[in-house]
Design a protein around this nucleic acid. Structure first.
Lengths: 238, 238
DNA sequence: CAGTGGTCTAGACCACTGA
DNA sequence: CAGTGGTCTAGACCACTGA
């Protein structure tokens, strides 16, 4: 029914900041002042202001008080594409066409394979993401065979390799690189594009602790895909 | 010296989850069990577990307890480029060359200008980001003249327009679109590239409340720039 | 319906730091 | 050195929900 008191206090303070009523550097009421204003205990006020601090809207300093933070926008939240879900959301038919899957020793002359598996084996997977039968993205993936035993025999009809991995390998870290590139001849053929045509290129390394799990490179024809990132003072920390 | 107790409890639980000691869906000890284990009050335990929930590592449900969350990686943190800072960090000389600045009525036949300013005036700024004198990115920016009065006469020698705006317009929301495109003839000339050459294209809309402040489109030659985004179970919520 | 987390109180002692 | 936030206690009542 009614929101908890600490959420109401947080909301009220947030509203004053976002409306510009309080400018960056201005002081909010102290905890003791807010206790009186809302007729509540200090823990309740503290919870509200700590949440604002965690969200980056205020900075709290002893003696100085709680100050409206200077806005930053150094980072935004990037949606990681689940291609299958996105295609289906548009009412199209999603399919993953497996082009090849090999289990073989990592090639020393390929930096990604050496980084991934050292002297061990890699599972190399190439495939095409299709929307209503038309090529959406070409995917080249390498998986550390020792780290993910099940991958060699996994069935990618239901889930493409990325989704399969997300389900079977928990708690990873990842780094994504987004760039543009021109289509090579073989890539152009598979994507039904012209050689040299502009592509959006997404490369991602995924770790579990210190161990590299997988490397993937997905390329999209320029008109087939955009990535979207968002920033908001409220949503930034979520 | 010593970390607060609630941080220690949080750290201990986090370590057990990240080590795989507790799998997704497993139950953590209840608050009352942790109270006994650490010999502390329930508020202290609650603070630790709430922080883990806010970070997305656990899900808390009444009666069911605190469960290790299923990993998601639906989103990553994207660094927003401060081109001037990045260029200087590489030891190169950064400059912004202003190509043109106009204050004029928004053109109705251009969707961005109509969205931005309606029937009002826009400030249209075109410029080139240079690293050691070589073109790094071509920028086309539109600013809502009514919303940002100072921009018409601002000096962009010290700060490029994006940096200037960040300093003068607080608390905005933003949406960034990243795509690939081929260079048009005029763009290619300014960027010292071939027509049709692949470009990384970054478009960003910035709002203050319901009001649109600025639209910017930056294009980078494919080999000049990559964007990087990161995901980590601990750092995700920061 | 018993056990869980959610919220809240009314205190306390303390570390820090800027007026 | 006085005022601020940081932490913590030992309770309480409650809403929710799954064993």
């Amino acid at each position: 029914m009614s929101k908890p008191l600490h959420e109401r206090i947080r909301f009220d303070c947030e509203a004053r900041i976002l409306a510009g009523d309080l400018a960056p550097g201005d002081r909010l009421p102290t905890e003791r002042e807010l206790m009186r204003e809302y007729g509540c205990s200090r823990m309740t006020v503290s919870k509200a202001l700590s949440a604002l601090a965690a969200a980056g809207l205020v900075v709290r300093r002893k003696r100085a008080g709680t100050l409206v933070a200077r806005p930053r926008m150094h980072s935004m939240v990037l949606d990681v594409p689940d291609l299958a879900a996105q295609v289906r959301e548009r009412g199209q038919d999603y399919r993953f066409r497996l082009l090849s899957r090999q289990v073989r020793p990592a090639r020393e002359d390929r930096p990604e394979e050496a980084l991934l598996a050292g002297n061990g084996a890699v599972v190399a997977i190439d495939g095409l993401h299709l929307a209503d039968g038309a090529p959406l993205a070409l995917e080249h993936r390498l998986v550390n065979a020792a780290a993910v035993p099940g991958i060699a025999g996994a069935d990618f009809d239901a889930d493409p390799p990325g989704t399969w991995l997300l389900r079977h390998v928990p708690w990873t870290e990842a780094e994504t690189r987004i760039s543009a590139a021109g289509a090579r001849g073989d890539e152009a053929t598979l994507l039904a594009a012209e050689p040299g045509a502009p592509l959006l290129c997404i490369e991602r390394w995924t770790w579990r602790g210190a161990e590299r799990i997988t490397y993937v490179r997905q390329i999209f024809p320029a008109d087939a895909y955009d990535m979207v990132a968002r920033f908001g003072p409220t949503a930034a920390a979520r």
